[in-house]
């Protein structure tokens, strides 16, 4: 004689699967480095043996966005480059995450001109911001660990096309008459 299924038991099983998935994903980050500028040197320093990003399971860059989980945007993005970057992001399969590496990708940095995108979060969602010009490798590893925490908490944390919310310390008011 079958009894009614114990829902709490099923819920318990489901959450454990999610946790196991998150745990597996956070240690097998296949990254797509989109390197455009000087931050790339610091990215390389972090990726290679001295700091060894591979300790965190993120040592294997994939050069096809379709095989990548995390998009590392490393360096200044110009208006001309923005459609290319957005297309790379759109080509990545879910679940996917985005790391803004360096202050140019966070806010535009000291570029406030006709040609620079003022933060890649104006054109795509961002999960982790790593400010710095360029950020130290320790800073990058800290950002990577924060990303791992985010992945472990659950897949699909990336916001939909509505774009992410900038952390308060990175919010810069637009001043159209700043040059006057």
């Amino acid at each position: 004689m079958a009894s009614a299924p114990d829902l709490s038991q099923l819920n318990w099983v489901t959450t454990r699967v999610d946790a196991a998935l998150g745990w597996a994903r956070k240690f097998s980050i296949f990254q797509y480095p989109f390197v455009t500028a000087c931050c790339g040197m610091e990215y390389m320093a972090t990726a290679t043996s001295h700091y060894d990003m591979d300790r965190f399971g993120a040592g294997f860059p994939r050069f096809s966005p379709r095989q990548a989980d995390v998009l590392f945007v490393v360096g200044t993005i110009s208006q001309k480059m923005a459609p290319v970057l957005r297309r790379v992001y759109d080509q990545m399969a879910e679940p996917k995450w985005v790391v803004a590496f360096g202050v140019c990708t966070c806010t535009g940095g000291f570029y406030d001109d006709y040609t620079t995108v003022l933060g890649i979060d104006t054109i795509m969602p961002v999960d982790v911001y790593i400010p710095g010009c360029p950020p130290r490798p320790e800073n990058v590893l800290d950002g990577l660990m924060k990303l791992q925490d985010k992945i472990a908490q659950g897949a699909g944390t990336t916001l939909a096309a509505g774009l992410s919310v900038r952390p308060p310390e990175l919010q810069v008011p637009h001043r159209p008459d700043a040059h006057l």
């Binding site: 208006q79 459609p83 006709y114 995108v117 003022l118 979060d121 774009l163 637009h174 040059h179």
Partner: peptide, 23 residues
């Protein structure tokens, strides 16, 4: 853009989104 009468904050993004429309 290097003409002196080009507005220094004027942006002309190719990829237009709600977030960069303000600029």
């Amino acid at each position: 853009p290097l003409r002196k009468d080009y507005p220094i904050n004027k942006r002309q993004p190719i990829l237009k989104t709600p977030a960069n429309a303000a600029n």
